[in-house]
């Protein structure tokens, strides 16, 4: 369970304070499938990064399964990222000099998992996303959809409880995108908390619930089935 209370993230940019997140209060249940929408600069990526323990809130509280995370040291945050959180990025972020298999192994490498076990688990994870046959290819030899599937294998190989995806289909064609979304759905069905940041209503509608952000605030919470477009969602938002 993710509990955010009065959560703010402010930047100082050129002497001007930017409120990327402004007093967010939100609870995300374990196993929930959540979509985060909003115009660019609304703070949705920042929210994802804070939940992912990659960014720290300036103020407020972030409790992850009852444990306060906001004040943890870098070392402890790193462990949370390794074991509790999986990331999927729009740009895939696979290391080009490594094979798909080696890319999937990275998180386990940082966690000190023994080499043989790393290999076994990485192969299994790639097989689950249908990439078993492409394990020894480098990212340059893979299609966009394949890359993202490898990235998803990497995100879940440590069996995290939360999967964070930032525009996971943003760089993919329709067919590849659909395959990736089906994977995310399947992972959600296995019990993962899935949080997807997207500007695509089609992607957001696959979630259970949608948060709409504007200027660092949550301006609307709605069931995903009611979503038609971002503009409409924003128009119906409480100002």
């Amino acid at each position: 369970m993710i509990e955010l209370t009065g959560l703010s993230r402010r930047y100082v940019l050129g002497g001007e304070t930017i409120r990327a997140l402004d007093a967010i209060d939100e609870t995300i249940r374990s196993g929930e499938h959540l979509a985060v929408m909003g115009p660019s600069g609304s703070g949705k990526s920042t929210l994802l990064n804070v939940i992912g323990c990659l960014d720290r809130p300036t103020s407020g509280s972030y409790r992850l399964d009852g444990r306060e995370v906001a004040g943890l040291a870098d070392h402890d945050l790193a462990r949370l990222r390794r074991r509790e959180i999986g990331y999927v990025f729009q740009a895939f972020h696979l290391i080009p000099r490594m094979t798909a298999l080696e890319n999937v192994e990275l998180g386990m490498l940082f966690d000190g998992v023994a080499r043989n076990e790393r290999r076994e688990r990485a192969v299994a994870a790639l097989e689950r996303v249908g990439m078993g046959a492409r394990a020894h290819h480098r990212p340059g030899e893979l299609s966009g959809g394949e890359r993202q599937r490898a990235a998803i294998a990497r995100a879940v190989v440590m069996r995290p409880r939360i999967l964070l995806a930032d525009e996971p289909t943003g760089n993919l064609d329709q067919a590849s995108g659909r395959a990736v979304l089906e994977l995310l759905d399947a992972l959600h069905e296995q019990g993962l908390t899935v949080i997807v940041v997207t500007h695509d209503p089609g992607v957001a509608r696959r979630a259970q619930r949608v948060l709409v952000l504007r200027d660092g605030r949550i301006v609307r919470r709605m069931p995903a089935v009611e979503l038609r477009s971002l503009d409409e969602a924003l128009a119906g938002a409480v100002p």
Binding site: D74, A78, R81, G107, R154
Partner: peptide, 16 residues
């Protein structure tokens, strides 16, 4: 730089 950011996201601490 991107690779470093990725490593951090995958759970590498600054020390690592």
């Amino acid at each position: 730089t991107q690779e470093i950011g990725l490593a951090r996201a995958l759970g590498a601490s600054a020390g690592t």
